[in-house]
Design a protein around this nucleic acid. Structure first.
Length: 471
DNA sequence: AAAAAAT
């Protein structure tokens, strides 16, 4: 019996290897490795049939899909190529120096494939999807820095972020990587950064949030959008989702010249957003890095069953000791709940920090800085911090309220983004969901079904169990 | 509901 199925598998493998190598655009053929697995890093598909064949093979475990990168090229006839080192990219020396100064030795999986496309002549448009912590930011920062001409004193690269905190974080990467360009300057187009009227800005790179950038480009004319060469949308799915910053992002995009390079990056793309992205970006190249399952594998997910908000609060207090071993983020649905929770926790003598959009930007910058430095162990926040915020010591994410969209349906994307704040760089992480009603239990079940990953019950009165999860 | 915003 066992022999039979093995024989069948070999048969299938041979057939699969043959069909795949026929469809493969690269010269190198896919061959089974010593264990008989078909391994491949880069695959371009001629058509749908090829893609569905590969998906079938992955499902039947005939192809190893760890770190698999899928690339759909705008011009399928041009050779598809990836780089294994930064030297191969022929970057300007100052830029290469910046890359190494940041401690990057070799390109990450997404960078191997995205960089050659982004740096090609003429510039190529790109829609890229890859998990957080895989080097997206560095990838598009590199693309911007390699196109910028520091001697020209006007904005040439424009990057949009969905939140103030993320703009600051990405700005830091730009500053670090570009520090060997003596004349290079970066401007932050964010709320509260007020400039004199009639002024034109001389910074070559602008990073900002949609509203302010739009004002700077249109009404206030601080930026001449016609001179932008590279346009980056970070967390692109929020930026172009109807419920997100779609209006402003699209209005900005329309002001850019036709030959402006467009780069869209996100960890998740819901179907409708994905379709929209391909409509908005002319002739896009598409890169997807499939690692969703791997991320969820390194994060243990639990839920705590309560019957009211106060019970959730009590359960949280029981957990407090365990979560402060490293750093933790606690997510609430509204700003009001967040500030209430932060105040209640303080009353109980637990030190926590609060961050939400209703606070002043200066205060927000100070809080995120303290959290980054580890001076604050626990951050109570809203969806403002659900995406992209990168603090390595975060090992616990608590959903005090489960993520739901405006219709009250489970928001799977946000769930994945939130718990993705932990378990970064392959580290282990812990996610605890607070359930306080039949309704929220139903939402949790639907999230569980969506990701097909068991979320286990946790009893916060059982100290042994808390001890267990904390270690 | 949150975020963005020189409204």
């Amino acid at each position: 019996m066992a022999t039979d199925s093995w024989a069948l598998a070999v048969d299938e493998q041979e057939a699969a290897a043959e069909s795949l190598s026929n469809l493969h655009l690269k010269e190198e053929k896919i061959k089974p490795d010593a264990n008989g697995n078909l391994k491949t890093n880069v695959i371009s598909f001629k058509d749908r049939a090829a893609q569905s064949l590969l998906n079938k093979l992955i499902r039947s475990n005939l192809v190893d899909n760890t770190n698999q990168v899928e690339v759909l090229q705008r011009d399928p006839n041009s050779p598809l190529y990836s780089v294994k080192s930064f030297e191969e990219l022929r970057l300007k020396p100052q830029l290469l120096q910046g890359v190494y100064a940041m401690g990057f030795n070799r390109p990450s999986k997404i960078q191997e494939n995205a960089l050659p496309l982004m740096l090609a002549e003429p510039p190529q448009n790109l829609i890229a999807q890859s998990q957080s912590g895989t080097g997206k930011t560095a990838a598009f920062v590199l693309a911007m820095l390699s196109q910028v001409e520091p001697t020209n004193k006007y904005p040439q690269c424009l990057c949009l972020s969905p939140t103030y905190e993320l703009a600051l974080q990405t700005g830091k990467v730009i500053e670090q990587m570009g520090k060997f360009y003596p004349a290079l300057k970066l401007a932050y187009a964010v709320r509260g950064n007020k400039l004199e009227r009639g002024q034109k800005i001389s910074e070559q790179i602008v990073i900002g949030t949609p509203g302010t950038v739009l004002d700077w480009c249109s009404k206030l004319k601080f930026i001449d959008p016609k001179k932008i060469k590279v346009f980056v949308l970070d967390e692109a799915d929020v930026m172009i989702a109807t419920q997100g910053h779609q209006d402003q992002s699209i209005r900005i995009q329309r002001m850019l010249p036709r030959n402006c390079q467009m780069l869209l990056f996100s960890a998740t793309f819901e179907d409708s957003v994905w379709k929209f992205a391909q409509k908005v970006v002319p002739d896009p190249n598409v890169i997807k890095l499939k690692r969703e399952e791997e991320t969820l594998d390194t994060i243990k997910q639990y839920y705590v069953l309560c019957s009211s908000r106060d019970e959730k609060f009590q359960a949280l207090c029981n957990l407090y000791g365990a979560i402060t071993i490293a750093q933790a983020m606690i997510f609430c649905h509204t700003r009001k709940t967040a500030s209430w929770l932060a105040a209640e926790l303080s009353k109980e003598g637990h030190q926590v920090a609060l961050l939400s959009g209703e606070m002043m930007v200066e205060q927000r910058a100070a809080v995120i800085e303290r959290f980054r430095e580890g001076k604050e162990k626990v951050l109570v926040t809203t969806n403002v911090c659900a995406r992209g915020i990168d603090v390595e010591q975060v090992s616990v994410v608590i959903n005090f309220d489960l993520p739901v969209d405006k219709d009250g349906n489970p928001d799977n994307e946000t769930y994945l983004h939130r718990i993705g704040r932990t378990g970064r760089f392959g580290k282990r992480g812990l996610a605890v969901n607070m359930v306080d009603s039949k309704h929220s239990m139903n939402i949790l079940n639907r999230i569980q079904e969506h990701f097909n990953k068991k979320i286990e019950r946790l009893d916060t009165d059982d100290l042994d169990e808390i001890e267990k999860i904390a270690n």
